[in-house]
């Protein structure tokens, strides 16, 4: 059964097409991820699905209801965690959950039970009566997830759930999301610009750039499209002239396609067979007396898929001013 059905959805802000004729479906119990760089239109799309933004054209049905015609019905069925922390920091965790529950029409006795249950689920029982401003970023995120679950929604929407969190906390948050699906059969729709998040957490991923879905499928199927291996070589050389000559020589040795210099002086090669390619790469580089600092190779990741499809790296998108402000707030 499809719990989210999007057909030809478009959102225009003046001249800017934020979401460009997007169509897709999400099945019940799926963890579905929208992967794309900042400004790709992920949040705009999510805002439309959770009924706080109206689309310019196209239709969106969430939990069986059209978002334009029955926004209240949709809101009853969904839980949302926005990109920015939307907790009241002056209030305690319990008060935040309580207010939310009451607004959602959960009755008092049931609400009390639910708060106890959920604070245990997110392992914040000891903190639940402490003011939220004393929480860490990860704790706030967990509390927000608990809040979004209070009214037993069918679908959980998460906008960049682990933005600005440290690696350990991110893994922790992923575990909660996976458990939700496993134990409660909740459908999860999330946006992210972290390829590892999409890869490790999502059943299916839609890669979005400039408001358009450019590829969609299971992460392993998407990466399988690239029938190659990736070799990374970190070198000491930064002299532009020498690098150019080096590139030329590499090209003459058959590394024509898909090699490039990444930040931190790392060369990235797309090769058919890493075990054969690495000695060859060494040979060429040694001819230039370049010192090799580090070599690694891997199967293609979603990052490579994105690179292949758009010619750009996910990381190459500069975080805009708003993102910086966001991160600053998060880190406080």
């Amino acid at each position: 059964m499809d719990v989210i059905e999007i057909e030809g959805l478009t959102k225009r802000f003046g001249d800017v097409l934020a979401v460009d004729n997007v169509s897709f479906k999400v099945k019940k119990g799926e963890i579905f991820g929208f992967l794309g760089p900042n400004g790709a239109g992920k949040t705009t799309l999510l805002n439309i699905l959770v009924t706080v933004l109206k689309p310019t054209s196209g239709t969106a049905r969430v939990a069986g209801y059209d978002v334009l015609k029955y926004p209240l019905k949709v809101r009853e069925k969904i839980g949302v965690v926005f990109q920015d922390i939307t907790l009241d920091r002056e209030l305690t965790g319990r008060e935040n959950l309580w207010i939310h529950g009451r607004v959602y029409g959960v009755n008092t006795s049931r609400l009390k039970k639910r708060i106890d249950e959920l604070s245990r689920f997110i392992e914040l029982e000891k903190w639940i009566d402490v003011q939220v401003k004393k929480y860490s970023g990860g704790m706030m995120r967990r509390l927000e997830i608990a809040r979004a679950l209070i009214h037993n929604p069918e679908i959980l929407f998460l906008d960049e759930p682990t933005l600005g969190l440290d690696p350990q906390t991110r893994v922790h948050v992923w575990d909660y999301i996976k458990r939700l699906r496993r134990e409660h059969g909740i459908t999860v729709f999330l946006t992210t610009h972290y390829m590892d998040e999409a890869e490790k957490l999502c059943d299916r991923v839609a890669i979005i750039d400039h408001g358009k879905i450019i590829s969609m499928g299971k992460p392993e199927d998407l990466t399988r499209q690239i029938d190659r291996e990736i070799v990374y070589v970190r070198v000491d050389e930064a002299d532009g002239f020498k690098v150019e000559k080096m590139f030329k020589a590499l090209g003459e040795n058959g590394f024509v396609e898909g090699f490039r210099m990444l930040e931190d002086k790392t060369l990235r090669f797309l090769v058919d067979d890493a075990s054969k390619a690495i000695p060859k790469i060494f040979e060429v580089l040694q001819g230039f007396k370049v010192r090799i600092r580090e070599v690694k190779y891997s199967k293609p990741t979603l990052e490579d898929v994105f690179l292949q499809l758009t010619g750009k790296s996910l990381r190459e998108y500069e975080a805009g001013f708003v993102e910086h402000v966001r991160l600053y707030h998060r880190r406080r």
Partner: peptide, 18 residues
Amino acid sequence: EFGFLKEVLVAPASRSLL
């Protein structure tokens, strides 16, 4: 835009009353 009230916007309750 950035706070608690944003979350309330997705509640199945009357915004005028909230």
